[in-house]
Amino acid sequence: MVALSNDGGSHKVGNSSSLMLDVQDVHKRFGPLEVLRGVNLQVKRGEVLVLIGPSGSGKSTLLRCINHLEKIDAGHIYIDGQLLGYREVNGRLIEEPEARVARVRATIGIVFQRFNLFPHLTALGNVIEAPIHVRGLPRQRAVEEGVRVLEKVGLGEKLNVYPSQLSGGQQQRVAIARALAMQPKLMLFDEPTSALDPELVGEVLEVMRELAGEGMTMVVVSHEMGFAREVADRMALMDGGQILEEGPPLQFFEAAQHERTRTFLSKIL
């Protein structure tokens, strides 16, 4: 069922209104290499999906397509019912202007494997930058909210410290706080703990666990199976640019249906 919204764009409503993320038959190629070959994925509001798979399977690319850092070549992505990156006019897809896309990106938080903190700003500086310049908050309020979210991730003592002076785990927690400061509807995590020393992984997973408990919709690409088992509502295996299997964690760990799933899990468990 398709409905027209006030601004003339169209989006699907009805059964899919509880869907925060709806990826439909998405294709993406880089030159001659097709990295995403018809990906279908749905994530309900408040759900935590953990995406696993071998490297090169397209998991990172998929996340980057979800927040439109990369443009897809075919298919549709709906964020909270709204078509991303394009508007449908008379059955044709027209690219949205950059400013529009930027606004949608502001509602999706992403945490990168290498943190990507802004080195020339303090922890607090990193966190308040977008709320001030993108959300347009007055500085005072942005600082208040920023302090609160940094305290939430356990870094209330490190407000005026520069990223280079923080440990990896602390940097990643600042990155999470920075994303949360924009009050996103959906949080994407691209191997958030893969670049961390083992003893620092726990503090980041703990923050993610809390976030999940608060009802945030999350898509997490990770190899942390313990986290997946405890926190994920659903898991999906991606290989060769496609989702091969999807289901609750128990199914994955005890009764995986696809051959590839079993092979992959046997290698990492």
């Binding site: 502001a106 959300r135 994303a179």
Partner: peptide
């Protein structure tokens, strides 16, 4: 690093904002 532009854009900044606030200062 391209990651800086990624992070800036992911937070909702336009290209120009990202240039002014994140890339150029560095």
């Amino acid at each position: 690093e391209p990651g800086q532009m990624d992070a800036a854009k992911s937070l909702g900044m336009t290209n120009l904002q990202a240039m002014r606030r994140v890339i150029l200062p560095q």
